[in-house]
Design a protein around this nucleic acid. Structure first.
Length: 288
DNA sequence: AACTCATCCAACCGCGGGCAT
DNA sequence: GATGCCCGCGGTTGGATGAGT
């Protein structure tokens, strides 16, 4: 059976404007995300449902971190990609502040090249690759898949619990949960607007100034300025190893404040806890 | 200054899974 | 079981921007 096109003809395409963002956010503030089919008409947007969902999940949703990936995030992505392949949504679920689109783009534009370069160097130097070099005993494919599945399940549950904890009013007793949940959306908008205004003011030359692109938080003083205005969000660099038990028992956790996230035994190897810039050859020989 | 080429990334497209009927 | 619809995912595209000449 054929599929009907998801979007009617006549819907708007291309970069989102601040006005559209405001419409979408204010609608979701009132009704919550979901039932995307009805969102465009209900919110008064000339967009298709997919576009609305994408805009929300990738840019407007609370708790999204923009900007440069940390070394730790890079390493995590590289490792997860090696294990899971191009399952960006799954990989992104390990990076609560990053979207699958962000992770995918970062992989395609930065990490893939970086790894290729490293692999070339390694081949020249006759060094074994990461996948083939783990010192752990080989698992059968079935065992490996079950283990990965179990780890994913465990991590997701832990993450859900952790995020639920974070949203509890105990963190900020003066605000309601709903307010806490969506407040950062307003901040997202503010940040986007800030970038937009900045571009508008500074560049008469960029006539078709792309609102979305102007939000590039990675590159500018805009970020430095706006960061201080934003409420604290989870930062991977703040994770602390609870117990440096490199055997990787299930009792090991990464701590982020009061939140504990179990270490995934099959996903994390010693590289996570080694020196920042160098990896032991024969385990995960990648220098990032 | 003007042009070309490379890079980045927001947004789009099409497919598959899951659910309801 | 067949069909239709919605949602989410991964791949791809195209405009904006930066670097090089």
């Amino acid at each position: 059976m054929g599929r009907l096109p998801c979007c009617d003809k006549g819907v708007k395409k291309g970069p989102w404007t601040p006005e559209e963002d405001l419409l979408l956010v204010s609608y979701i503030q009132q009704h919550g995300p979901g039932n995307w089919k009805t969102v465009p008409t209900s919110a008064g947007l000339m967009r298709c449902s997919k576009s609305c969902r994408l805009r929300w999940t990738n840019y407007l949703r609370p708790g999204i971190k923009r900007g440069n990936f940390t070394d730790q995030e890079e390493k995590l992505i590289v490792h997860l990609q090696e294990i899971l392949g191009n399952r960006w949504a799954t990989i992104a679920s390990y990076l609560p502040e990053r979207t699958d689109n962000d992770v995918k783009n970062y992989w395609n534009t930065h990490l893939k090249k970086k790894l290729k370069k490293i692999q070339t160097l390694n081949q020249e130097g006759g060094v074994v690759t990461a996948a083939s070099s783990t010192s752990q005993p080989a698992l059968s494919k079935g065992q490996w898949e079950r283990r990965v599945q179990a780890d994913i399940h465990m991590a997701k549950r832990a993450l859900d619990e952790a995020l639920a904890l974070q949203d509890k009013p105990t963190v900020s007793p003066t605000t309601t949960t709903a307010t806490t949940t969506y407040a950062s959306s307003a901040e997202n908008i503010a940040r986007l607007l800030q970038g937009w205004m900045k571009n508008k003011n500074s560049s008469a030359k960029t006539t078709g100034s792309n609102y979305s692109t102007s939000t590039d938080a990675s590159s500018s003083a805009t970020v430095a300025a706006s960061k201080s205005d934003l409420s604290p969000v989870m930062d991977c660099s703040l994770f602390k190893l609870d117990s440096p038990n490199l055997e990787g028992s299930e009792t090991d956790h990464l701590n982020h404040g009061d939140i504990k996230i179990p270490i995934l035994t099959s996903l994390f190897e010693t590289w996570l806890f080694e020196e920042e810039d160098s990896m032991e050859v024969g385990r995960f020989d990648i220098i990032l």
